[in-house]
């Protein structure tokens, strides 16, 4: 599992894409690293409660925080600001176009803590910072496999080298499904969801498939824009395995297996390969079955319950015959 590093400089640059933001003081602090996803409003700290202070969070000063500070006497205000700076937060941002107190400006410059200012309201700033940080600081791993969007279901196809993962993905793309990544899938955890994308960030190198005997194929060029997708929620793992005699495989579909990726459980299906088996068709059916299950239609279970009902009825018939003493 990997964690990405993020500097305040990067965050500052990214924020510029969403809201107007300027750096007021503490340029030295731009190289600091941020590890905490949630911005914090230091109101409680100003009110005197300093326990459990989230010192690793970006500190956001909105209307109320600045208002509270200005309502204080100069000396108290300076004590409060000194207290805030003593926690050495990664950065401070003042919202709603408010002017930060001079004492804070000077303090930030002295200690090398970046102080930013924006005209955006605090709710919006907080939302943007949080969603950006959640994305950038998300835990991720690389999984050897292919990710394909089949009928809107993100299918992660895994299996040993040379078993035919890329071929299965190609088959699916020719049937109109969309490729997200071949060979290496970068899987990120976002809240309780897994998001898969290609490891390659440069567009020109994206969406290439390697087919043994043919070489590298660019899916976007060969199949057009409809054949590709940038990222997709990973909903199901499908492992292709060589068929082994005597090994037991799922037959009824009554029991479901799960696999845990970054703490998120998703259904896991093992498909034994034998000559003549059409993986693309099976994959499509698996996706359709998954869709069915997500609206409460479990083929295996329905079959089982109908069968039990029927068997019971038959039992009743026999009982009637036995009871018939004419």
């Amino acid at each position: 599992m990997l964690n990405t590093e993020l500097t305040i400089k990067e965050l500052f640059k990214a924020l510029k894409g969403y809201i107007d933001v300027q750096l007021l003081a503490g340029e030295k602090g731009l190289s600091r690293k941020i590890t905490e996803k949630f911005p914090n409003r230091p109101g409680y700290l100003f009110a005197g409660y300093d326990k459990d202070f989230p010192a690793n969070s970006i500190q956001m000063l909105g209307n109320r925080d600045i208002g509270f500070l200005s309502s204080m006497k100069k000396k108290t205000r300076e004590v409060k600001i000194t207290k805030l700076l003593s926690f050495n937060p990664p950065a401070i941002i003042v919202c709603c176009g408010l002017e930060p107190p001079d004492f804070l400006l000077k303090g930030c410059d002295k200690l090398g803590i970046s102080l930013m200012k924006t005209n955006a309201p605090s709710w919006k700033t907080s939302e943007i910072i949080q969603s950006y940080l959640e994305d950038r600081l998300a835990k991720f791993i690389f999984i050897h496999g292919d990710l394909v969007d089949v009928f809107g279901i993100g299918l992660l196809i895994t299996g040993e080298s040379g078993i035919g993962k890329s071929e299965a993905a190609l088959d699916l793309v020719t049937r109109g499904h969309r490729l997200i990544a071949d060979d290496v899938v970068c899987v990120k955890r976002k809240k309780d969801m897994l998001i898969g994308e290609e490891m390659q960030k440069e567009d020109i190198l994206r969406h290439n498939l390697e087919i043994r005997g043919v070489g590298i194929l660019n899916v976007a060029v060969l199949f057009g824009i409809k054949g590709i997708r940038m990222h997709k929620r990973v909903e199901l793992q499908l492992e292709l395995v060589r068929w082994e005699k005597g090994k037991d495989y799922t037959r009824t579909g009554l029991e479901t297996n799960e696999v845990n990726i970054l703490g998120v459980s998703i259904p896991y299906i093992k498909i034994p390969l034998v000559p003549g088996k059409n993986i693309a068709t099976i994959t499509e059916v698996i996706a359709m079955d998954f869709l069915g299950k997500s609206v409460g239609f479990y083929s295996g279970e329905i079959y089982e319950s109908e069968l039990i009902k029927k068997l019971r009825k038959r039992g009743e018939k026999y009982l009637k015959l036995e009871e018939d003493e004419e």
Partner: peptide
């Protein structure tokens, strides 16, 4: 691919399968 062992390459903590070309290329 000539070896039976599981072979991999790693760069900056990112590991890929050495028996598969796309992963190696993605390490750039």
């Amino acid at each position: 691919s000539q070896f039976d062992s599981k072979v991999g390459l790693e760069k900056n903590d990112i590991g890929v399968n050495a028996k598969s070309i796309m992963g190696i290329l993605m390490l750039a």
